[in-house]
């Protein structure tokens, strides 16, 4: 019981210290889990991240599930995951409540109108960064362009595009038509 509490608290701490998630949390995980506690090795952490990248869901959550599972089985996985999301739940609920209450104040409206411009730039930068890891040959460029064009003009669920891309990957591999080199998984 005590260990589950510890697991929860350590991952809650990691949740608080992570801004932005994804790779931003790698140094924090290294310090907390590899250096301070020896709960995982560098290599395991890199593996968890690589798998987190190519499994559904939020990478931080996936990594927490892995390490919790390693330490204490299924229940450990669940406890660690709840720990990592707990700070978000508290902080965002408070902020969202405040913002909803003050949404009619002119200064707040002006501030968010400015912030929306910034969000556009941040999304653009995120796409540029992801581009390097994802678009590496003609095949991946075509997938990007086709989905971009279709999703712009047709109002389809993103699930359809993800499924279609997945089926394409399996089919090309089965036919041995997957381009060699370039896009390797981590």
């Amino acid at each position: 019981m005590l260990f589950y509490c510890k697991l929860f608290l350590i991952f809650a701490k990691i949740g608080v210290m992570t801004f932005g998630g994804g790779y931003a949390m790698l140094p924090i995980l290294q310090r907390e889990l590899v250096d301070n506690r020896q709960w995982a090795t560098e290599e395991e952490l890199t593996d968890y991240f690589a798998i987190g990248q190519c499994t559904p869901g939020v990478i931080a959550v996936n990594t927490a599930t892995f390490i919790g599972h390693k330490k204490k089985g299924v229940l450990g996985g669940i406890v660690a995951t709840l720990g990592v999301v707990f700070p978000s739940l508290v902080i965002i609920s408070i902020l969202a409540g405040l913002i909803l209450n003050f949404a009619d104040v002119p200064a707040v409206q002006n501030a968010f109108a400015g912030i929306r411009v910034c969000v556009c730039v941040l999304i653009f930068n995120a796409v540029c960064k992801l581009w390097k890891g994802a678009i590496k040959n003609i095949l991946t460029l075509c997938i990007f362009l086709v989905i971009l064009a279709v999703a712009m003009f047709l109002d389809l669920s993103p699930i359809l595009f993800i499924l279609a891309a997945g089926i394409l990957g399996v089919t090309l591999e089965a036919l041995h038509k997957m381009p060699k080199g370039g896009a390797k998984s981590q």
């Binding site: 990248q53 190519c54 999304i123 995120a126 796409v127 992801l130 581009w131 890891g133 994802a134 678009i135 095949l139 991946t140 460029l141 997938i143 990007f144 362009l145 989905i147 971009l148 999703a151 712009m152 993103p158 595009f161 993800i162 279609a164 891309a165 997945g166 394409l168 990957g169 399996v170 090309l172 591999e173 089965a174 997957m178 896009a183 390797k184 998984s185």
Partner: peptide, 20 residues
């Protein structure tokens, strides 16, 4: 290799959807 190929195709799809 199937997992690998699938994710090679999934990544550009995910980037395109974020771009949209």
């Amino acid at each position: 290799r199937f997992v690998n190929s699938t994710f090679i195709c999934l990544r550009p799809a995910s980037v395109a959807l974020i771009a949209v």
